[in-house]
């Protein structure tokens, strides 16, 4: 196994981690500020991808497609927040789980009703496609580098938003004491809608960016949603920094585990058995990681201590 291959796999792990971060950031913000567990976050990711595919198909512009994805997911997010979620803040997690599970059913079948049962087409624009050669002779797809950069920019932007702006102060205050900031005259319901729209837009952006190199199809959001849950459990719920670190850890573990565990097993097993049991263990690796982190720190790496 060459160094080049290892570096390339690390880049792959970073890239998948950073896309997970876009999903996890919204989830963790929404939970941190509103105390809401939103299973339908994966549907917003799917809506982003479908909107992008539809707009790219009509206009041929990838940038417009990305904007449309964020707008569509944000609008869906706002609608969901005003019509459904708003009634759930005061209830327990159980009702939230059920209601957002119901939303998944509605969004998934609704999307299939509108767009049909076959996957949609969404591709990388020409100016972003193809490989580039990195120092050391590594051939790496340009688009994936762009994804890493976009993800890091969003992470930095979110960091600034949270620490430097008035909205950010309100969000942080909301995470600490919801009643208090309402009493201080912040329009809490507007803040909630805003945070929800922001989280939704990030999920939509992730859906569109990833949709360009994957399959745009109904149900694409749920596997990512579960990974995002793992991420925020590892990182600590409510923490943007935790979401970033957790996402990178999960991305790297998933990618590197899939590549190296079978190789490792080959040292002491015959190849095809090693291949299949190595792959089996690799598919469970992130859950084992999560278990380990929680034994060490029950509220995640950066979660608030109880």
């Amino acid at each position: 196994m060459s160094t080049i291959l290892i570096i390339e796999q690390i880049l792959n792990g970073l890239q998948s981690g950073i896309m997970l971060f876009l999903m996890a950031a919204g989830l963790t913000l929404i939970f941190g500020v509103m105390g809401l567990i939103n299973l339908a976050h994966g549907s917003l990711y799917m809506i982003g991808a479908f909107a992008a595919a539809a707009v790219a198909g009509l206009t041929g512009s990838f940038v417009l497609a990305l904007i449309a994805a964020m707008a569509a997911a944000a609008i869906a997010g706002v609608l969901v927040e005003m019509l459904v979620i708003r009634r759930l803040y005061a209830t327990d997690h159980l009702d939230q789980v059920l209601a957002t599970f119901a939303l998944i059913l509605i969004f998934s079948e609704g999307t299939r009703w509108v767009f049909g049962s076959f996957p949609l087409f969404l591709d990388i624009p020409d100016y972003l496609s193809g490989p580039v050669t990195l120092p050391g002779g590594i051939q790496y797809p340009f688009y994936r580098l762009v994804l890493i950069c976009v993800g890091l920019l969003v992470a930095a932007g979110l960091g600034l938003l949270i620490t430097r702006t008035r909205i950010g102060i309100q969000i942080r205050a909301g995470e600490n004491d919801r009643e208090m900031i309402a009493a201080l005259g912040v329009d809490i319901s507007k803040l909630y809608t805003l945070v929800f729209a922001l989280g939704a837009a990030l999920a939509g952006l992730a859906g569109a960016l990833v949709g360009a190199i994957q399959s745009v199809q109904v149900g694409m959001g749920e596997p990512v949603l579960i990974l995002a849950f793992v991420v925020i459990v590892i990182g600590g719920i409510g923490s943007i920094k935790g979401a970033l670190i957790g996402a990178l850890l999960v991305g790297l573990t998933d990618t590197l585990g899939g590549v190296f565990l079978p190789q490792l097993f080959k040292l002491f097993m015959e190849p095809s058995a090693a291949q299949s049991s190595g792959s089996a263990l690799a598919s469970m690796a992130i859950y084992i990681l999560m278990g380990a982190v929680l034994i060490w720190r029950p509220t995640g790496l950066f979660g608030a201590r109880p």
Partner: peptide, 14 residues
């Protein structure tokens, strides 16, 4: 090479 991927996997960069 011979690889088994995860069922439902969506990223094949590795």
């Amino acid at each position: 090479g011979e690889i088994f991927t995860k069922l439902g996997q969506t990223d094949y960069a590795a």
